[in-house]
């Protein structure tokens, strides 16, 4: 692996569903890169295409979905055109997925230890039973499970939500993948446990060097762990860059609005929180021009300029840093 090539590179990715007149494109021109040891956050409202983007990377789109455009390169290999068997051998071995609801993702009728060993047997058939047990135990320990021996013998429902998520992470990590895809891994958890899981992800990156793509609707968790952030809206990337840049001085009005909708802690609370009025557009009929324009305060403030309704302000491959906006915000520090 050459040093300057990113581990994962996604360009101009588009996903379609449906046929004929009912075609829709919930992911439409998404591009981003993930370097070795990097944590990249993908943020957006539900329906913006962030989870589908993640599933497209793994070749796990729900039925009827297909990648119709763009490229996915992982470790110098093209994944978009890859054979399903190649993808299968990568999944769990080099790329692992951490689900949002670990309780549902773990098999309810198998002990945690058995599930860990099963995945080891698939990817490392040469290990002895003893070695497999040891590796499974290590994985649980690494996921900071208190009393890993007990967890090994437990059924998922016997564990708390946080412990289930740690087990799911152990399952994802035991084969030491190079890339971890985490789909809202903390949404179903309590705030205090959320913080622990986020910290765990950072620690694991530091120890194992695993790169992480972290999908969330909660922009405030991005600040906790990510190096870079990709903001998605209506199937497209509207802003991306370093976490500090994007979160402290957002340039896209949508990013700014997302940040403004987080209730501040401390001082006298405002009477009203900032919100994005209206609803996101329908993926079966994306509007032309800038897709955020109908909900954009800046569009109204600037007297509804024509550019916004006529041309898409982003880059062709979706990779460009900064904001996909004709009139980006300047120097707004939050």
């Amino acid at each position: 692996m050459t040093g300057d090539q990113p581990l994962l590179s996604v360009r101009d990715l588009a996903v379609e569903f449906g046929r004929g007149t009912r075609v829709s494109r919930p992911v439409d021109g998404v591009g981003f890169e993930v370097g070795e040891r990097e944590i990249v956050g993908i943020v957006g409202e539900s329906g913006c295409g962030k989870s589908l983007t993640l599933l497209a990377l793994l070749g796990l789109l729900p039925s009827g979905g297909r990648v119709v455009n763009g490229s996915i390169t992982f470790g110098g290999r093209d994944l978009r055109g890859a054979d399903p068997s190649v993808l299968r051998s990568l999944r769990g071995r080099q790329v692992a997925l951490i689900p949002s609801d670990a309780g549902a993702a773990l098999n309810p009728v198998a002990r945690v230890g058995k599930q860990l060993r099963l995945s080891l047997r698939t990817h490392h058939p040469d290990l002895t039973a003893q070695q497999r047990r040891g590796r499974a135990l290590d994985a649980l320990r690494r996921a900071r499970l208190a009393r890993p021996e007990q967890a090994l013998a437990a059924y998922p429902h016997e564990l708390s939500g946080g412990m289930q998520q740690r087990s799911a992470i152990a399952l994802g990590l035991q084969n030491e993948p190079r890339l971890l895809l985490a789909d809202e891994p903390t949404t179903a958890l309590d705030v205090s446990i959320q913080a622990e899981i986020l910290r765990l992800l950072v620690q694991l990156r530091d120890e194992l060097g695993t790169a992480i793509v972290f999908v969330t609707h909660d922009i405030s968790t991005v600040r906790e762990i990510c190096d870079r952030v990709v903001v998605m809206y209506a199937g497209q990337v509207v802003e991306q860059g370093g976490v500090e840049d994007v979160l402290t001085s957002p340039r896209h009005p949508y990013t700014a609005a997302l940040l403004g909708s987080i209730p501040p802690l401390g001082g006298v609370p405002p009477e009203q929180l900032e919100t994005v009025p209206g609803m996101p557009p329908d993926p079966a009929a994306w509007p032309g021009g800038c897709r955020f324009q109908a909900r954009c305060r800046r569009f109204t403030e600037l007297g509804e300029p024509d550019e916004c309704t006529s041309t898409w302000p982003g880059s062709a491959d979706g990779l460009a840093l900064g904001a996909a906006c004709h009139f980006p915000l300047e120097g707004v520090r939050r």
Binding site: G162, E196, S220, E224
Partner: peptide, 25 residues
Amino acid sequence: LIAAVPGLGERDSAEVSQAEAPGPA
């Protein structure tokens, strides 16, 4: 609880990690 609110603590803050140490409920 307050230390756990996202966007509040410094990353990898030693003080916070300590609070976490006793493990899950």
